[in-house]
Amino acid sequence: MLWDLRNKERNEAAAAAAAVSDAGQLIPTKVLRKFLASLTSRESPVLMDLGPVVGSNVTFLGERLGCKIILEDLFADVERYPKGSETPLHEYLKTRLKHMPESVDGILCWNLFDFLDLPSAQVLASALTKILRTDGALLSFFATIGSTDARFSKYVILGDDSVRQRPYSTTGRKQNALPNRDIIRMFEGLKVAESFLLKNNVREFLFRKIPQTQ
């Protein structure tokens, strides 16, 4: 009887593990905790998420921070933007975010920049820098090597230290790997507060906006 129960538990655990692996890749994160901590001290912070809408993230962030979350799914915009359009993507991105300067306390970019060409990445980075409040935080992931896997990902926050990366089907875009030098130059006006290279070859950066007087 006890043996049967143990077997049942083992089978259930194996089934649960299989379900987890099907659901996406677990990615440990070092900077999410710091990103959240930087917002916790602020009263009713404003957070911008550039990724696709993930209901559990909204619940997690909202209940954790008591914040206003602006959901701007730029992945969808990038995917829908016609390739070979007369107006290049970076021109479109110049006017895409119509938020007031210094109006957002935190920005989650996920790995959006991996799917942008350098001019578009620069335009978006300067737009984000502009709308970020002084001492605000920006979190972004960058691949270390270019990849043919052109699928976008949803990042599901599991806790302060881990997220689940769930690819979803798209029309496909080349995934670039920006060098550190370009990343730091792109975000002029922000300083690199934390950066880590994870074992899965993802670089994660936490930027903070420095006061203009410095």
């Binding site: 009713s44 809408v53 993930v54 209901g55 619940t59 909202g62 209940e63 008591g66």
Partner: peptide, 24 residues
């Protein structure tokens, strides 16, 4: 104060859950 968005739902806009923090 509480928002639930199911998988497969469509949402475009912002979510303000600040009320809960204020209540707390």
């Amino acid at each position: 104060p509480r928002v639930a968005i199911a998988e497969g739902a469509h949402f475009r806009g912002s979510v303000d859950m600040a009320q809960k923090a204020k209540q707390v």
